[in-house]
Design a protein around this nucleic acid. Sequence first.
DNA 1: GCAGATACTTGACCTGCATCAATACAGAAA
DNA 2: TTTCTGTATTGATGCAGGTCAAGTATCTGC
Lengths: 239, 239
Amino acid sequence: MLLETYKVACSNCNLRELCMPIGLSQEELQKLDDVVATRRKVSQGETLYRNGDSFTSLYAIRTGFFKTCVSSQDGREQVTGFQMAGEIIGLDGITSDHHNCNAVALEDAEVCVMPFANVEEMSREFPVLQRHVHKIMSREIVRDQGVMMLLGNMRAEERLSAFLLNLVQRLNARGFSRSELVLRMTREEIGSYLGMKLETVSRTFSKFSDEGIIEVKQRWVKILKPDALKRIFDPDSFC
Amino acid sequence: MLLETYKVACSNCNLRELCMPIGLSQEELQKLDDVVATRRKVSQGETLYRNGDSFTSLYAIRTGFFKTCVSSQDGREQVTGFQMAGEIIGLDGITSDHHNCNAVALEDAEVCVMPFANVEEMSREFPVLQRHVHKIMSREIVRDQGVMMLLGNMRAEERLSAFLLNLVQRLNARGFSRSELVLRMTREEIGSYLGMKLETVSRTFSKFSDEGIIEVKQRWVKILKPDALKRIFDPDSFC
DNA sequence: GCAGATACTTGACCTGCATCAATACAGAAA
DNA sequence: TTTCTGTATTGATGCAGGTCAAGTATCTGC
C-alpha cells in the first residue's frame, strides 16, 4: 500500500465521465476534487479491503481490475463481481460500518480513496452529486438482480455468453475493442461468479470455439460472431 | 389503487424503528413526516409498480407482503426478494428513472409513498437521514450478495434452510413467533427465489419434515429443530 | 536451458435436480 | 353439498453439470 502525497484532481481526470456526474462545470468539478483524499496503489493479488475491515471510504478505480467476493464459514467462495476503471467499490461497507466482502486486485491497480464522510458532506452541498451517488448504488442493486437472474434461471452457455457480452461492452465503453479481450481472471473465478465449476467454464469456452463463435487462447478471447452470442443470451435485453 | 388524503405521520408510526433512523427526537421526527406524501393500498395480486414504470417514489411497507421480480425476454422470471412491513422498496428505480422490476403484493398491503425528491431534499437537511438512506441501499446490496452466494454455491437443502431461517428471523423482529410462520408465497415463488423448481422445494420441505426438523402443512410451517436447520445452513454466520 | 508451480483442457463417470406425469388437497363459488 | 381452480405432493426417469483424473500449456526463477 502506497500513499501518494500529491493532490489528485477529478477535474482533469480522463475517467470523470465514468465516475463523476456529467454536465458539471469546471468550477463545480474543482470543488468536487476534495472528495478524493489520496490515491492508493494495490498490486496484483493484494486486497484493497477485506471482510470485517472497518469501513471509511469508497474507492474509484483509476487503473487495474478487481474482483469482489464473499465466503461462507465452510470456506466456499462466491465472486460477486468484477470491477474495472471508472467503477466504484466499497458500497457494501456502508450498512454496518465494516466491509462485507473482499476486494482483490486481479492486476496492478490504482484507486482514488474517497472518505465516505467527504462524499456525504459534498452530497449535501451538491444535489447533482447526491443524485449521482444514489444512482451508483441503485445501479449496483440492478446489476445484482441481473446476476440473480443469471444464477437462478440460466444454463451454462447462457451464463458465459452474458458474461462475455457484458465484459466486452464495458471494455468498449472504455475505448477497448468490441471484439477482443484479455481476461483478467482465472476460469475458477469466472466459474465462481457464474455459479459453475471451472471445468464447465472451460468446456463451454471450447464449445463456443468449436462452433466458431469465439476464438480462445487461454486468457485471450476474440468474439467472432457477436450476434450468435447475443442469440444465446443478451444481457442488455431484459423485459 | 386508493389514495388516502389524510396526512400520515412517521412520528407516531409503530414501524418507525424499522424504517426511520433511530435516535431521532420527537421534533426531528415531525419534520421528517413530510417525507411521506400519501399512503397507498395495494390488494393481493396487484402490482405496486412494474418494470418500465417511471420512477418517482420509494415505498415503505406498512402492512402486507411483497415480492419483487425481474424477467427475461423469453419469459423466465426470477424473484429477487420478498419484503415485509418496515422494509423499503423501489430502490431499483433510481439509476435509470424507471423501475427495473415488478413489485407484487402477495397479500393485501399498504405502503407509505415517499417521493424520492422529498427523500433527497430531506437528506440534504438531515445528515442522520442521509446516512440512513445510504445504509438502506447498502443493506440491499449486501443482501443481494448473500443471495448470490446461495444461488451460486449452495445445495437445495441449504437454500431452503437459509430461506426459512431468514424469514423467521425477520418475522421475529416484527414481534411474530420465532418458530411458527405462514408462508405468503407459493412453492413456485420460493423456488424462483432460490433457483430451484417447485417440485424440489416441495420435496425438500417433505424431507425436512420426515427428519423431524420442521412440520409443514401447506403454507403453515413450524420449526421444530432450529439448530438442525442452522447446522444445514445458517445465513447469519458468514465469515 | 530445466524444474516447479499454476492454470487450463479434456475425458469418463456420477449425481442432484429438472422434467414429466399422476394424484391429492384446500378454498371459492354455485 | 359438489364442482372448479389453483396449489402442493410424490413417483419415475433423464440429463446438465459436477466430480475425479490425466495430461498439457504457460510462466517464473534458477
